[in-house]
Design a protein around this nucleic acid. Structure first.
Lengths: 227, 227
DNA sequence: ATACAGTATATTGTATACAAAATACATCGT
DNA sequence: ACGATGTATTTTGTATACAATATACTGTAT
């Protein structure tokens, strides 16, 4: 009874945050497509709230880079260009390498164990062919490394950068021919972390991102060729 | 006449952005101190606007990490702890090194010239003793490098990270005994960029940040010892 | 004097109302 | 038929109003 009450108070989220999460998810999954306008009244009606929380959510999406504002014309979903994605990946490459280096210094034995089982989970997920499961296993693996840095702002930064790649992650995962390489890369990262070999860990992460970059950029080119 | 009209339309900024800039500056300069509550009606009265633009500005400050929200209690200026600053600097170290590496590949001869004169401007600024002028010259120097990467998202990231260090930048600059070292570091960075030597450029940047870190962390310890 | 209860006040969260600008559309003239 | 002009509509930008919660205060009982 009291427990239940506690839970409900803990679960309180301002509507603006509910809207923010909803819109973000819609953008990342592609329900809201690049260039699409976000009209306040329309969204308000659709989500059953007033314009106020909608507007506040849009302000956050704006700073996050998921929507762009045009003065007196409102918000629209940010376009993804090859350049913008390449910019993101360029940063991601360095940041992931940093994560690996820091993790070498700070990862605990317990986290190393969890990392290894996350690695094995990923390999198992690859055998099954469910793309969502594979993607989730990949996220879990990398999350352990980022968390092991103990740098909360770094966690947040990686999250934001990952977000930008989200729509293309699936393309990368869908390419089954690339799976053996991913498995090898994960193994290399694991190995380096276990040895606490910063150079090797960082380099493995760079290779890992470089490979992702190849398939993501290829996909974008294919997409833009269509239009 | 028409020109004037053009200017005024160009200069249009929604009130939310005016408020956002105003509050951000107030936080960075320390007019609004860590832990201080941002009360909407109070701010609205003070700035002569309604609560709506205030709230939207706060949403952006929230995502930027300059304020933290407490549900149903509103916003307060984020505290700066040694840990949070150390987290920022850890990222900044890697990101600045990345900037240097990319700049090695992409900086134009014209930008190299401007960089060199910015370096000399800094040396001149150091001779005069105006801290604000010195800080500005330092910013100009580093801006050229970041811009030379041609990566707009990287520019934005560096800006955000710099922001967090802003309040302590002056302490670093104020320490006149450190100036010769800074001058040498700038020269090393310049030199490496001219030679397009990525390793040297990156390493110089790391050293540069490590030195900043020392003085900033020392300052924070001194501050927290007072309280 | 101190702890507590109950009320008043202040503050946030949300919804609505109003103003200004941008867009769409229809009418008119050529 | 085409373009221009003026009006209607839509949409954003801003202000205000209302509701719910948290905080501060006051008085009372111990």
């Amino acid at each position: 009874m009291l427990d239940n009450l506690q839970i409900t108070t803990d679960e309180y989220l301002p509507l603006r945050d509910v809207v923010f999460n909803t819109l973000r998810k819609a953008i990342l999954t592609g329900d809201l497509k690049p260039g699409e306008r976000l009209m306040e009244i329309h969204l308000a009606d659709k989500l059953g709230v007033s314009r106020t929380p909608i507007r506040e959510a849009i302000r956050k999406l704006e700073l996050e880079g998921l929507v762009v504002m045009i003065p007196r014309r409102g918000a629209q979903v940010a376009e993804i260009t090859e350049k913008s994605m390449s910019d993101v990946l360029e940063i991601r490459r360095a940041v992931d390498a940093l994560c690996a280096e820091l993790a070498c210094e700070r990862i605990t034995d317990e986290e190393l164990k969890r990392l290894n089982s996350a690695r094995l989970d990923f390999e198992k997920a690859v055998e099954g062919k469910d793309v969502t499961v594979i993607a989730q296993a990949d996220v879990s693996f990398h999350n352990i490394i980022v968390q092991a840095t103990g740098n909360q702002r770094l966690v947040q930064l990686v999250e934001n950068l990952s977000e930008q790649m989200y729509r293309y992650r699936f393309e990368y995962i869908k390419d089954f021919s690339g799976h053996p390489a991913i498995i090898k890369e994960h193994a290399a990262i694991c190995e380096a972390l276990k040895k606490r070999d910063k150079l090797a860990a960082a380099e493995s992460c760079r290779v890992h991102i470089d490979n992702q970059k190849k398939s993501i950029i290829a996909r974008i080119r294919k997409d833009s060729a269509k239009h």
